[in-house]
Nucleic acid binder design. Structure first.
Lengths: 187, 187
DNA sequence: ATCTTGATGACACCAGGTGACATACCCACC
DNA sequence: GGTGGGTATGTCACCTGGTGTCATCAAGAT
């Protein structure tokens, strides 16, 4: 029997989501989160760099999955097609987490600080995708624009997805956004 | 003779830029900024909602100018052309502020918190442009994607502009980004 | 049995941010 | 020319996010 209960990080994340959902993000202190998880404030900050981060540790997995999709794209695909190749595994990853995503989205939606964090995570994601494109020989300019476009498509589709009831609709919604972007940018 | 020196807000902004440039953003306290401006910490927070905001109060003007350009676009222009109509006045507005923009960009570049604020300002800008497009009869989906695309083009071009020496190059750089986006999203 | 390692707690501290109240000038009005 | 209200600022107390530092205690290695 180990000295501490297992999965401290997971307990902190769960406690945080619960409290944010119950009382709101701002009204919840880090000390409260830690207490509910049976830990102290100091330990919270050992697992998360700041209070917001407890809602965003999953972004690493999103990036991993997307980049795997990108890596699997055919060599001769256009830059945007390479980026879009990440959308399949991403949609799959999210489909089972519709309920969680909705709660989390509701919390983020109500708090500008959290929206800021979300945007910089998406920006980092775009940067990583850009790097992968450059690695494949795409020019830096085309790479950043294709990556940003893909991330925007994801972001717009995500917002629609959490607002409706069908967990399996994500892939379709992303395709629709992508098509809309193509039509809008057609000279 | 009035009781207080004029332009408290401007003095705070100048003091902040100076100190951030001299010692870095994090190493500068709000109390220091206020002191250099001959005011108190409490007064700083009467003018700016938080420490970061002192670098971003100009974003309101960017939005105003861009939306004026959008409003002046021909009725039959495509959504992206309407958005792009804002780039002309925006380029003009920035051309005279190249030096200032560089210093400010350097500060923001060195601080993730400031990048977050920048991103949410751009997001708000995109939201305002989207609303203007919807007002003109564009569908919400096309509007958000066109607005986001335009803001991304601006952002990418801005980054290039501050990294080179010709203050008048902004308009050309935005056109190049726009062209690159068109070419990248062409099916 | 002792040592080392790693996760946690305890505590003090700083800086960002806010609420409440005091102060002193300006101006309008009588 | 006093008087009263409005407004910008100062003062002070306070909370919370975030960090540095040291102590503690169990698990496993030697």
């Amino acid at each position: 029997m180990s000295r501490w209960k297992p999965d401290a990080q997971g307990r902190l994340m769960s406690a945080a989501i619960e409290l944010f959902d119950e009382q709101g993000y701002e009204a919840t202190t880090v000390a409260e989160i830690a207490e509910r998880a049976g830990l102290t404030k100091r330990t919270f900050f050992r697992y998360f760099s700041d209070k917001r981060e407890v809602l965003f540790s999953g972004s690493h997995e999103l990036q991993r999955v997307w980049l795997e999709g990108v890596a699997a794209a055919p060599t001769d695909a256009t830059p945007l097609a390479v980026v879009a190749a990440g959308l399949d595994p991403v949609a799959e990853m999210f489909t089972e987490r519709h309920d969680f995503a909705r709660i989390r989205a509701g919390i983020i939606d109500a708090n500008p600080e959290l929206q800021e964090r979300e945007l910089i995570k998406l920006q980092n994601l775009a940067g990583a995708i850009k790097a992968a494109l450059v690695e494949r020989g795409v020019s830096p300019n085309a790479a950043i624009l294709a990556a940003q476009a893909g991330v925007t498509v994801f972001h717009v589709a995500f917002a629609h997805w959490v607002e409706q009831d069908d967990p399996t609709a994500f892939r379709r919604l992303m395709d629709e956004s992508l098509e809309e972007l193509r039509s809008v940018t057609a000279a």
